[in-house]
């Protein structure tokens, strides 16, 4: 078995502002099944971080358990990482973010990790408006335990052996908007270009950014009857909008936007430009987004693209009024300001 990808790289690979090629953002060689959608997601993370010129050591990769949660090993080998307990990635990520708010947090989860065992954690991390990009590699199946349907499996779809799923499915994008997520999108592992744009915008967004990524399981859930196969997705997908990410550094005045184009300025001053394709819903309107999603669910279509964004969102630190400097940066003197301060705090409760 090949356990190593050659370090040789194309002599004319593009270098980013840090002088790095995308190869510098790779991780170990994946041990997922050949053709796994998750590897395409890893590649998209690599590309997005490279294009944003993020220093790899300023990124923290957080994950739970599952095929999806193995995946962070396969990107950003020089970033921080924590492979936590099943479904508990949001808690660990919250702790990390409380300690160091300056890192870029990428939460990588799966449909089982998020919609089953970690469903409660998922709801609460959204409520906390944690500043992170939370991505779900969604294939509707428990791949690691050989193919049982997960909570996102479409009702009425069949397993590889033909068993019909009798239970209602959870649409994670709908739930995310409902719980108060301020950036919600859906992508497809087979469309890297769209995925990279969505990820770049999600990382530029300050607040909870969620991307539901349809990521077919080629081993257990790519058959006829599946709601998460390549063919099913390609037949049922409906592109809401084509998006284009314009980093802050580029002169955005050069191109005159067409009429049907909507521009959303993100927190860091960069912009996402949206061109409507199938739907005319206003992506900055929560109700519009929710009704579009409910209608799509009813019509058995899968909306992709940027579904909802609140460009004025606040994040957890804004809400809680924490110190602007990261906790791990504060000295003992600042953390233990002494008896007189403690006394004044205690007096405040009397």
């Amino acid at each position: 078995m090949s356990y190593k990808k050659s370090h040789f790289q194309h002599p004319s690979l593009k270098r980013n502002e840090l002088g790095l090629t995308y190869r510098d953002y790779e991780g170990s060689l994946s041990t997922l099944c050949a053709g796994c959608g998750h590897d395409a997601i890893s590649a998209a993370v690599v590309q997005a971080c490279h294009e944003l010129s993020l220093p790899p050591h300023r990124v923290a990769k957080m994950s739970g358990i599952g095929c999806s949660s193995k995946a962070p090993t396969y990107f950003l080998g020089q970033a921080h990482g924590f492979n936590s307990v099943h479904g508990r990635m949001p808690s660990v990520a919250t702790g990390a973010n409380m300690a160091n708010r300056d890192l870029v947090y990428i939460g990588m989860s799966g449909d089982g990790d998020t919609s089953n065992i970690g469903f409660g954690q998922f709801a609460h991390v959204i409520r906390r408006q944690m500043n992170m990009m939370y991505i779900v590699a969604n294939n509707g199946v428990y791949g690691l335990t050989k193919g049982q349907s997960s909570a996102t499996a479409k009702m009425g779809s069949t397993s590889k052996k033909g068993a019909v799923n009798p239970l209602a499915d959870i649409d994670l994008a709908t739930i995310a908007i409902d719980m108060g997520a301020t950036f919600v999108a859906r992508g497809f592992s087979g469309d890297t270009a769209q995925l990279v744009t969505l990820m770049k915008a999600a990382m530029a967004h300050r607040g909870f950014a969620f991307i539901d990524i349809v990521s077919p399981c080629v081993t257990f859930n790519n058959h006829k009857g599946s709601g998460y196969s390549f063919d099913y997705f390609r037949e049922h997908a409906e592109l809401v909008n084509m998006s284009d990410f314009i980093p802050i550094r580029e002169d955005i005045l050069v191109e005159v936007p067409e009429n049907e184009v909507r521009e959303v300025i993100l927190h860091d001053g960069s912009m996402i430009r949206l061109k409507h394709v199938a739907h005319e819903h206003d992506e900055t309107n929560r109700l519009d987004a929710l009704s579009a999603l409910h209608k799509a669910h009813h019509d058995d279509t899968v909306l992709t693209g940027l579904l909802y964004v609140d460009p004025n969102a606040e994040d957890m630190h804004d809400v809680l009024g924490t110190a602007a400097r990261p906790l791990n940066d504060l000295t003992e003197k600042e953390l233990c300001p002494g008896m007189s301060i403690l006394d004044s705090i205690n007096n405040g409760f009397r």
Binding site: K5, Q9, H10, L13, C36, D39, G190, T192, F230
Partner: peptide
Amino acid sequence: CIECNSCVDICPMD
């Protein structure tokens, strides 16, 4: 080919 892009991502030489 099912166009899963795996080969694109793994190729060391693009």
